[in-house]
Design a protein around this nucleic acid. Structure first.
Lengths: 212, 212
DNA sequence: CCTACCGATCGGTAGG
DNA sequence: CCTACCGATCGGTAGG
């Protein structure tokens, strides 16, 4: 069997994904034309279609590569023997830095997933759920009573809100760096976690129970 | 002088803005056609153009109306005689509820502002800055040393991240309501605020100072 | 790998 | 003359 892809092919494809991510992030998926992507890569549109089947595949490749990287970060941190607090701290710090290095891909992941078809979107959302679950496990280990009140995942989502939102106001190269913000996020979330009141009506309540 | 607009005209226009917000939120601004907006309103496209000059004006009206409502909420809360803690608590609770009632408009404000022309976008961003400044003032009054470390606005943005992100995972009509989440956000942020460490290198440091 | 195109659909407006 | 609309179609451009 002849080889299907050369190293140059893969490099070119990587470059195309990076350019596409930057354009999608700035203009949105729909407002970006395949002509623009080709021009940014210095290739013709027919050449672009040699590397990707269609515009949807381009979007899927950008989103999937990013969520794969995030899942790899989770796996790395979980492979270390850390206490729940250290693990959550490491996850937050690693994610803030990962977002700083992939701000375009991150914007695409959060804003353009709706343009994927059903099966592709489900694959991406599955990856996101796995990542959220890893954070939520650490939250539960830190404050088990929050799980009983069904508050562990909501609180984890508030944490994701903090770090997912950072790319809208924290620009790389500015006075304040992502690296400097990471410990602030850690302090705020871990400090606040101890202050969250569990409503009496929700104590020991699971999703399917009703109040006696 | 004859009246320019009838009450029916204003009502129809309000209905158009609501339908456009819902479509823009679900499909994005670019992917939504004026035909779809007209169809959702049960009117023809020429009739739609009787109420709005063009598609950009439609986007601006949706975004501006929402940011105006948020500024009105800020003004209402600031008109009350509240302690800094009570004021921040009230702002958080009111915003979470306001977002729950205007989830489509909120999504448009956060994702589609980039499609406005320069002057319109600046007007909307100015409104956003005013709102953020009101929250930041309350944060500074609660922990003045954060302002010296230039951390008050970053922390305020983390707070906005929590509540701005809620519309992505907290669906109206679900088991967990926005009203139930509001006090959780208050506890997490106010509790965490006391735990944020001010780096020694940033103590008393302002944006233009260098380390002595 | 390019120029040259296609079916369709876009935002916006004509006449009545 | 105004307003509030309609069916039909304009010039350009999208993805492919």
């Amino acid at each position: 069997m002849a080889r299907i892809r050369t190293a140059a092919y893969d490099d070119q494809r990587e470059a195309i994904l990076a350019q596409a991510a930057a354009l999608f992030a700035r203009q949105g998926y729909t407002a970006t034309s395949m002509n623009q992507v080709a021009a940014a890569c210095g290739i013709s549109k027919p050449t672009l279609y040699h590397y990707v089947r269609d515009k949807h595949e381009l979007l899927l490749l950008v989103a999937q590569a990013h969520i794969d990287r995030l899942q790899a970060v989770v796996a790395e941190v979980e492979a270390q023997a850390l206490s729940p607090r250290e693990r959550l701290q490491a996850l937050i710090e690693r994610f803030v830095l990962a977002y700083a290095d992939a701000q375009h891909e991150h914007r695409v992941l959060t804003e353009d997933v709706k343009f994927l078809d059903e099966s592709a979107r489900q694959r991406v959302l599955d990856g996101e759920r796995r990542v959220v679950a890893a954070f939520a496990r650490a939250v539960v280990e830190l404050r088990p009573e929050l799980a009983g009140a069904s508050l562990a995942t909501p609180l984890t989502m508030l944490l994701f809100g903090m770090i997912n939102w950072m790319f809208t106001w924290l620009k790389p190269g500015g006075a304040l760096s992502h690296a400097a913000m990471a410990p602030v996020v850690v302090d705020l979330f871990l400090g606040g976690l101890g202050a969250v009141q569990v409503p009496i009506s929700r104590l020991g309540k699971t999703k399917k129970e009703t109040v006696a």
